Computed example of a mutant assay.
Amino acid sequence: MDTRSRVATLAVAVVAVVSTVVQPAAAATGDGSPSDSNIRYFGRWDTRSAGAYVPGWTGAYAVIGFTGTTVKLRQRSSVDLYAKVDGGGWVSYKGVAGTVNLTPSRLPSGTHTLRVAYRQDAGSYHGDEVFQGVVLDSGAHTVAVSVPTRIIEFVGDSITAGYKSSKEALTAYGWLTGEKLGAAHTEIARPSVCLYPSSDGCIGMRDRYFKTGLDTSTPDWDFSRYQVSDVVINLGTNDKGHNVSGAQFQTAYVTLLQRIRAKYPNATISAMEIFKKWYVTETKAAVAARNNAGDTRVRYVSTEGWIDPATDTADGTHPNDAGHQKIAARLAAVLG
């Protein structure tokens, strides 16, 4: 599963859920700019520039409620994206740039919700990643929307990122699980990452998880922006190919669990058995070590029989849409 991750710039996604970003004090509420406090962001967003927000990792998104009959997206440069207004279906836009009209047919007057997710390619957003806000009708404005209070974070590699599924993050098991449970969700995931930072260059989530994005140049993530209810970890498939030993893997897993607990004191942390069934003993031992240390909200999740590699994957490793749907159904039942 060592899929080459084109670590291009990370991109935008604008979809329904929860406010996860501390907005700048000067936010002009209602104007549709990135710092508009009515816009709800979920996932790890780099907000250092008030006029251009940049999401990190996979599946970052936000929701925009608005009045009026049209909505346009301010896009700096060419990008592929999916957009959804109110209860309609996802519409695909390819290679769009500048002011992108998402409502060629006017909407009825009233209050609406915009959801947009930028298309990914091997875990990297496909095109320019900078979100510069929306343009509304004259006299229209954004409005605050109701959002879930439960937040689930999915940590993993290309499987969690949805590589090989039809809409990547949008059709990945994490996204689907969150939707089934009516929860906010994000995937801290990219292809070709390991748990343990291997000597031959595999990026280790043991350490990189704590950044705003995959690139080391991104800021350390500020965990005070939001607290999650659940963390679901699915790591180890790439470690095998990078000759990470069982002892290295187990030690790295314990460290990651300890570090996550320090950031999320009240979250339930679930360590999934990877679908290749590698490092099972070590994953169980890492969970047991944390339990024995008094952390009773860490648990091991067996995935035996969840998917059939012959029919539920695209290549024997990466789940197809049907496989992700099966995983989501099982995982939603576990998370409850």
Rank of each mutant, 00 (worst) to 15 (best):
Asp2Cys: 10
Thr3Gln: 09
Ser5Ile: 13
Ala8Leu: 14
Val17Tyr: 05
Val18Lys: 09
Val18Leu: 10
Val22Cys: 05
Ala25Cys: 13
Ala27Gln: 12
Gly32Cys: 10
Tyr41Phe: 15
Asp46Ile: 15
Ser49Gly: 11
Tyr53Pro: 01
Pro55Val: 05
Pro55His: 09
Thr58Arg: 00
Ala60His: 02
Ala60Arg: 03
Tyr61Phe: 13
Ile64Phe: 03
Gln75Leu: 12
Val79Glu: 03
Leu81Asp: 00
Tyr82Gly: 07
Asp86Phe: 10
Gly89Phe: 07
Val91Gly: 01
Lys94Ala: 14
Gly98Phe: 09
Thr99Asp: 02
Val100Trp: 01
Leu102Pro: 02
Leu102Ala: 09
Pro104Lys: 03
Ser105Gly: 04
Thr113Asn: 06
Thr113Met: 11
Asp121Gln: 13
Ala122Tyr: 15
Tyr125Phe: 13
His126Gly: 01
Gly127Asn: 04
Asp128His: 06
Gln132Asn: 08
Gln132Pro: 04
Gln132Cys: 14
Ser138Met: 10
Ala140Asp: 07
Pro148Gln: 09
Val155Phe: 05
Ser158Arg: 03
Ala161Phe: 03
Tyr163Ser: 09
Ala169Glu: 03
Tyr173Trp: 08
Gly174Ala: 06
Ala183Leu: 07
Thr186Glu: 09
Ile188Glu: 06
Ser192His: 03
Pro197Glu: 02
Ile203Tyr: 04
Lys211Leu: 11
Gly213Ala: 15
Leu214Tyr: 11
Asp215Gln: 10
Asp215Ala: 14
Asp215Trp: 03
Pro219Leu: 07
Asp230Thr: 13
Lys240Tyr: 12
Gln248Met: 05
Leu257Cys: 06
Gln258Ile: 06
Gln258Lys: 15
Ala271Phe: 08
Met272Glu: 08
Met272Ala: 12
Ile274Phe: 01
Phe275Ser: 10
Lys277Gly: 12
Val280Met: 12
Glu282Arg: 05
Ala286Ser: 08
Ala289Pro: 01
Asp295Tyr: 04
Asp295Gln: 13
Glu304Asn: 15
Trp306Met: 15
Asp308Phe: 13
Asp308Trp: 08
Ala310Asp: 06
Ala310Cys: 04
Thr311Lys: 10
Asp312Gln: 12
Thr317Trp: 08
His318Tyr: 11
Asp321Leu: 10
Ala322Leu: 11
Ile327Pro: 01
Ala328Asp: 10
Gly336Asp: 14
